[in-house]
Amino acid sequence: MEDPLSYASLSEDNGVNYRRGRTPWEIKEGEQEFKMRFDMTKKDVKVWVEEKMLVVKAEKLPKKKPEGEVEEWSSKSYGRYSSRIVLPDNIEIEKIKAEVRDGVLYITIPKAKTSSRVLAIDVN
C-alpha cells in the first residue's frame, strides 16, 4: 500500500499531471472544482494541506488474531499509504472538503472564482 513515488499536480491549463509512480486515486476536473476518489475508510486516513500540497496518508494495521489461532490468509489488506498532490494557485484551500461514504474517501477541491470583468486603467 505504501508508494513513496506517488506524486501528481493539478493545474487549470493541463488538468492532471502525473509525475512518477502509480496513482492509486481517481481525479475528475469540473468547471468549478476538482474531485478525487480514494478507496479508504475514515479511521485509516488523514488529509491536510501543507505548502500548497494536498497530503493524504493512511495506515491499515493487520487484525490481531486471538492467541493460539492460526490463520493461513489475512482477511484484509494492510500497510501504509502516502501521497502528496501539488495544488494549483486557482483553488480555495479553506473550502477543501473530505468525506468517507461506503468505504470510499471523496475529496472536493473548489476552484477560486475568476473575474472576467474588464477594468480600464487611466494613463496619466
Rank of each mutant, 00 (worst) to 15 (best):
E50A: 02
E26G: 02
S83I: 11
Y18E: 11
K46N: 12
K52D: 04
V100R: 03
E71D: 11
E72C: 04
K60H: 08
Y7S: 14
F34E: 00
R22L: 12
F34Q: 00
K46R: 13
F38C: 01
P4V: 11
I109G: 02
G68F: 12
K52M: 03
G79R: 07
T114G: 04
A58R: 07
P4T: 12
M40F: 06
V86M: 02
L10D: 01
R22H: 14
L119W: 09
V47M: 01
E69L: 15
S75D: 14
D39W: 05
Y7V: 09
P88R: 01
L119Y: 15
E94C: 07
S115V: 06
T108I: 09
N17F: 15
I121Y: 10
L119D: 12
G103F: 13
N14Q: 09
S75P: 06
G15K: 08
A120D: 13
E51S: 05
R20Q: 12
D3S: 11
N17W: 14
P4G: 09
E51K: 11
V45S: 05
Y106Q: 11
P66T: 07
V49A: 00
V45A: 04
W73I: 10
S82H: 12
W25P: 01
K52A: 02
V118Q: 08
K113W: 14
A58W: 08
E12T: 06
S74Y: 13
K63H: 11
S83C: 15
S83G: 08
L105P: 02
S77P: 10
Y81E: 15
M1V: 10
P110L: 07
I27A: 01
S83K: 03
A120S: 10
P24Y: 05
T41A: 05
V55N: 05
S116P: 05
I107W: 02
P66Q: 10
P24C: 04
K64Q: 10
V100N: 03
K97Y: 07
V55H: 05
Y18D: 13
N124C: 04
Y7R: 13
D102S: 14
S77A: 09
V49T: 02
D102F: 14
E50H: 04
P66L: 13
R117T: 11
Y18F: 12
E71F: 07
V70N: 13
E29A: 01
I85T: 01
P66N: 10
A8M: 14
D44H: 10
Y18V: 15
R19K: 12
F34T: 00
D13G: 13
R19Y: 15
K43I: 03
E2V: 15
S11W: 02
S77F: 12
W73M: 08
K42G: 06
K46W: 09
N17M: 12
T23E: 13
Y106H: 12
N17I: 13
K97N: 09
S77L: 15
R117N: 06
V49Q: 01
V16F: 07
N124I: 06
S9F: 03
V16M: 11
N124S: 07
E12F: 03
D122M: 13
T41Y: 05
M1Q: 10
T108N: 10
L119H: 14
E50S: 04
E67P: 07
I27Q: 00
D89K: 05
D122F: 11
Y7A: 11
R101M: 06
G30A: 01
A120Q: 13
E33Q: 02
I121W: 11
K43T: 04
V16I: 09
P24A: 07
K35Y: 00
N17A: 12
E69I: 08
